[in-house]
Design a protein around this nucleic acid. Structure first.
Lengths: 344, 344
DNA sequence: TACATAATTGAAAGCGCTTTGGATGCCATT
DNA sequence: AATGGCATCCAAAGCGCTTTCAATTATGTA
C-alpha cells in the first residue's frame, strides 16, 4: 500500500492525502477524518526512504559503534543507547548505527553523515584532540558530543559531566580523612574523561603537596578483570596506597575482590571511591561494603542529548550549546579514616 | 555532490557513472578508472535514501530496542549488537534501531518492516508463544530470531542455544556430586530461555525423583542486585539448598556476595553454576572462586545471525533455517561435592 | 566493401513521497 | 452581475538514484 493506491482508494489526490496526514491546515476536517480512517483500515505507512528523499529529513539520529573482531564491547554503549532511545521513542525517531573499526571512525562518521540517512549525529568516546571534531564542524549537520575533547577549543555542542571536579572532590574527601597514599584506576589513557579525572586527582593532591606516582596509576579497559589486576598491582607496592579512586563501578568490583583476597578490609584498610554511571546491573549501595561514589546517570545524559538533537532537527530550540553536569558525591561505607601507619 | 553533478563533471551520463560505481561489466575499464578517481577526489557518496528508493535495498538490518522511562537497559543488548556489528561492518551494512515501549513491540516491529528502511529484521528477547512470530511470517521480509518461542511451531528461522540441554547437564553434574537440594535463579519468567532452562533443571531432577520447589526458584532481571536478593532468600529457607543454578554471571556476582556474607564458602557449602554469555566485562575464571559455567558467546551468536541475514539479503545463501548451538560446560572451583548434612 | 556483432554510452522512466503553483467552487461585497 | 477572498483540492515537478531500452561506435567476418 502506497500513497498513490491510498489516494485512488479514497478518490483524492496524493497531494490532499499527504497533507491530511501531515497536519496541514488547508484540508477539510471531514476529509482528514476520512483519510485517517482509511489509514487505520489499510495499515498504510509512508515509506521513510521516500519521505527522506523528498524532505531531506527522516527522523533519525546517527551514531557510529566502534567494533572489530578483537574489540571489547562496552556496557556504557548500551546504557547510553537506552537513554537516547527513551527520548527518541517519544518523537518517533530512530537510530542508524554504523559499525566501524575504531581506526576508521572519522571516515565512518563522514560516510554516515553524507549517506543522507540521518538528520543528526551523536558522537561519544571522545579523546584528547579528537580528530572527529574538525570534521564535524565542516559538515553542516547538527551533532552533539558526549564528553569533550581535551585540548580542543570548546566551541562545539557538547554535554559532559564535570569529571575533573568529581575526582577533585573525591580526592579531597579522602585527604580530609587523612589519606596520603593514593592510587587511581582509570579508563584508557587517550580518552578525554580519563585525562580530566586524572587532572582532578592530581590537582587536589597538589594542594597538599602530594603527587600521584606513575606506578599508582593504571589505565585499562573498565572491566571487572582489569580492576582485579590493577588492584593486585597496587597492593604489592612497597608503599601500599590506602586511598583508591576508580573510574567505574564495574572495575571496582574486581578491585574489591583483590582487596578481600589480600585479607584487607574495605573502608578500613583501604578506602575506595568509584565513579558510578548508574548502570542498572550494578548498584553500589548493595555492595557488601556499600560503595562511596561520584554519581551521574549515563542514561540521563543520553536522554538529554537525544532531546537536544531532536529539538534541533525539529527547530524546537534553542538549546544550550554546552552543558556541564555536576556529579554527586555520595558517601557510603567504602571510605573511612586513613589507617594508622604501623611505621608511624 | 550528487550523481548528476558528478556525471556532468566527468562529461558522462548518470547511467554510466552509476554503472561504473556498481561494478556493471558493460563499462569501459578506462572510464571506470576515471569515475573511481573522480569519486576519490570529490568525496562523492551515493545518497542511501535514493538508492533504497530506487532498488528497494539499502544494506541495513533493523531491530527494535525495548525501552521506556522505567525500563532497565540490558547488558546483553549491547553485546549482541557488538556481534552483529562485527559482521555488518564487513559488508558495509548498518543498523536501524527503533526504540519502542516493550508493550508495543509487535507494532513497532511492523512499523519498522514497512517503513522501507530495512532489508531484514533481527528479533530477540523471545517469549513463550511470542506474538511477533505470526506477524513476522506474514511480512515477506527476511528475519532471524535469536532464541525460540516456546510453544510455537519451530518453522521460523532462528538461532538459539540449547538452554534446556545446558541446564540439564549442569544439574546432572551437581547431582553426581551428591547434591539433592537445588535452587534456580532464573531470568524473567515469560522469556523463552528461562522456560527452557527451568525445564532442563526439572527434567534432570526428575530422573532422580527430585523436584524443584516453588520457593527454590526465582525469576528476576539478571542484575547483580537481584542475584543478591534471590540468594539471600534461598539461604534463609529451612532446607537450605546446596546447589544453585544461575542464569547469568552478572546475577552470580550478587549471589556470591550473599554467600560470603552468610559466612559460607562457595564450592564447599554452596555449589553454583552460572550461564556465561561471555560478556567482556566479567570473566568467570577470574572470580575469587572461579566459576563453573555453561558457556556460549552471545557475541558470536550475533555475528552469525548478521551473517545469515546479510547473506539472505544478498542472495548469498543458502543458510540453515534453524541452528541450535550446544553450550560448553566448564568446570571450575565453584562446584564441589555436596556437604555432609549435619542432620544425616 | 558491406554487414552482423560486440562494446560502450545515454535518454528517460520510475521508486514513493512532499510541495509549489495553480485550479475550482462558494460566499460575501460592491 | 461582477469582483475579490477564502476554503479546498489537484497536477506536476522534483528529491537522487537504478535500470530498461535504444543509440552509437568499434570490431570482426564474409
Amino acid at each position: 500500500m502506497n500513497l498513490k493506491q491510498l489516494s485512488e482508494l479514497l478518490g483524492l489526490s496524493q497531494t490532499t492525502v499527504s497533507r491530511a496526514l501531515n497536519g496541514y491546515p488547508e484540508v477539510n476536517e471531514a476529509t482528514r477524518e476520512r483519510v485517517l480512517q482509511a489509514v487505520k483500515e489499510t495499515g498504510y505507512r509512508p515509506n521513510k526512504a521516500a519521505q527522506r528523499l523528498a524532505t531531506g529529513k527522516a527522523g533519525s539520529i546517527g551514531l557510529v559503534m566502534p567494533t572489530a573482531p578483537g574489540h571489547q564491547s562496552d556496557v556504557h554503549f548500551g546504557e547510553f543507547l537506552a537513554g537516547l532511545g527513551e527520548e527518541a521513542v517519544r518523537h518517533d525517531f530512530h537510530f542508524v548505527i554504523m559499525p566501524a573499526d575504531p581506526d576508521d571512525e572519522v571516515a565512518a562518521l563522514r560516510r554516515l553523515a553524507i549517506s543522507g540517512n540521518v538528520d543528526a549525529l551523536f558522537v561519544a568516546y571522545m579523546r584528547g584532540h579528537d580528530p572527529r571534531l574538525p570534521m564535524l564542524k565542516s559538515l553542516s549537520m547538527p551533532y552533539v558530543v558526549h564528553g569533550r575533547s581535551f585540548g580542543a577549543e570548546p566551541d562545539y555542542p557538547y554535554l559532559d559531566i564535570d569529571n575533573e571536579g568529581a575526582f577533585y572532590d573525591a580526592t579531597r574527601l579522602l585527604l580530609q580523612l587523612g589519606h596520603t597514599r593514593f592510587a587511581l584506576m582509570n579508563g584508557p589513557t587517550h580518552l578525554d574523561f580519563a585525562i580530566r579525572r586524572r587532572n582532578g586527582v592530581i590537582s587536589a593532591l597538589a594542594e597538599r603537596g602530594l603527587t600521584l606516582e606513575e606506578d599508582c596509576m593504571s589505565h585499562a579497559l573498565m572491566t571487572d578483570e582489569q580492576g582485579l589486576l590493577a588492584m593486585e598491582r597496587f597492593l604489592q607496592l612497597p608503599q601500599r596506597p590506602t586511598a583508591i579512586l576508580c573510574s567505574s563501578t564495574v572495575m571496582a568490583l574486581g578491585a574489591i575482590r583483590a582487596v578481600n583476597q589480600a585479607g584487607l578490609r574495605l573502608g578500613e584498610d583501604i578506602s575506595l571511591i568509584a565513579h558510578d554511571d548508574v548502570l542498572p546491573l550494578l548498584k553500589p549501595e548493595s555492595f557488601s561494603v556499600p560503595l562511596t561514589t561520584t554519581r551521574s546517570s549515563l542514561r540521563a545524559a543520553g536522554a538529554r542529548i537525544a532531546q537536544r538533537l531532536i529539538g534541533t532537527v525539529k527547530q524546537a530550540g534553542p538549546f544550550p550549546e554546552q552543558e556541564l553536569w555536576k556529579t554527586e558525591l555520595i558517601v557510603r561505607a567504602s571510605t573511612g579514616p586513613a589507617p594508622q601507619s604501623h611505621e608511624a
